Simulated assay, not measured.
Amino acid sequence: MPMTHRTTHPATDGTATAAGSPVRAVRAGPGVPPAALLSAVAAVLFALAAPAPAATASSVHRIPLPALMADTGGGDQLITARAPTTRATTGTVRWWQRHNGRWRQAGSAPARFGAGGLTEGGTRVQGTSTTPTGLYDLPFAFGTAPPPPGTASPYRRVGADSWWCEDNASASYNRWVAPLPPDCAAGESERLADHPTQYARALVIGFNYHRPVHGRGAGIFLHVNGKGATAGCVSVPAGAMARILAWVRPSAHPHIAIGTAYGPTALTRY
């Protein structure tokens, strides 16, 4: 909560108000008309009755975003991906580090979201090109390019037979597979090597990953920008993706929170 600033008055002759704040006693000097004395007394009383200044928008803005959130995943690293509204396809990704109980921003980058905007992750429908809002873990990283120096996350190199199964009828739904299993149709899945720019480097977002609900969506990643909006992922410039991968530490239990500035999908709800 923002602190409320109170105006204090220096003590003079020990005269105090009922609230305990010392004030200067008002005395009439020789020749001071009664009207002037009453005016001075009224000014003092008005000053004492005035409310303390409210916290400004700038003071609230200085509070780190993770400190305003309902949950950050319990770790010491957090990525936030925030869009202005659910209809937006652009926004900002920031990554945060907690040290001695305090969150500090470690970096930021412009972000892109799904062509269909954003939607609540718990009710998302596959094929809508929407980015799911919510708080998710980051199971592992992958890419067609080598991991950047300093990468600590498990990193899988994309090969010719690397696929992400998105076939709702498959037992491998929402999983990396290599090669494609017989029950996973190629037309319903994504061959990762076909997207060398976007998947040069990426982090798997744990949306619908640990207990997949068929039909909710598969293959949601934080990856490198393509030519425009995504099919439901979050994307950032290549340089930012490299910095994020070099920064993420599995021992810090990193998570990503996706949401909007306001409303039912506000980032602070997650």
Rank of each mutant, 00 (worst) to 15 (best):
V32I: 11
E120V: 03
V177P: 04
D137C: 06
A57W: 06
S235L: 06
P132V: 05
P84W: 03
R124S: 10
P179C: 06
F113P: 00
G107S: 11
H61L: 10
H255K: 13
H5T: 00
R249E: 14
G206F: 00
D137R: 10
L78I: 01
A218T: 12
R201S: 13
Y199T: 05
T7K: 13
P264A: 07
A266H: 07
A141M: 04
P33Y: 03
V32K: 00
A231H: 00
L192W: 02
Y155V: 03
T123Q: 14
A252T: 06
G101N: 07
A70L: 04
C184I: 10
A160T: 10
P154W: 15
A11L: 08
P264E: 12
E190V: 05
E188P: 01
S189H: 02
A16H: 04
V26S: 00
A57S: 00
P2G: 05
A202M: 05
G217P: 12
A35I: 15
W163P: 05
V32Y: 04
A18Q: 04
W103K: 10
R156Q: 04
P212E: 13
W164S: 05
A47K: 14
A240K: 09
R62G: 10
L48Q: 11
R87H: 15
W163L: 08
R175H: 14
S39Y: 12
G232S: 11
F207R: 04
G226Y: 08
E188G: 00
T15F: 14
H223Q: 04
A160F: 12
N225S: 02
P196S: 08
A109K: 05
G107L: 13
L38I: 09
R216Q: 12
L118N: 03
H223S: 07
D13I: 02
W95N: 09
A67S: 15
P22Y: 04
P33M: 06
L68W: 03
A42D: 15
R269V: 11
P110Y: 00
P66T: 15
T8G: 07
G121F: 08
R191I: 02
Y155M: 08
N225M: 14
W164T: 03
D13L: 00
V224Y: 09
V93D: 12
L45Y: 11
S21A: 07
R24D: 09
H214M: 09
T4S: 03
A25H: 03
R62Y: 08
F221D: 05
P51C: 13
V213M: 15
A40I: 14
A52C: 07
G159R: 10
G263N: 05
G107F: 07
F142S: 09
H223K: 08
Q126Y: 04
I205E: 06
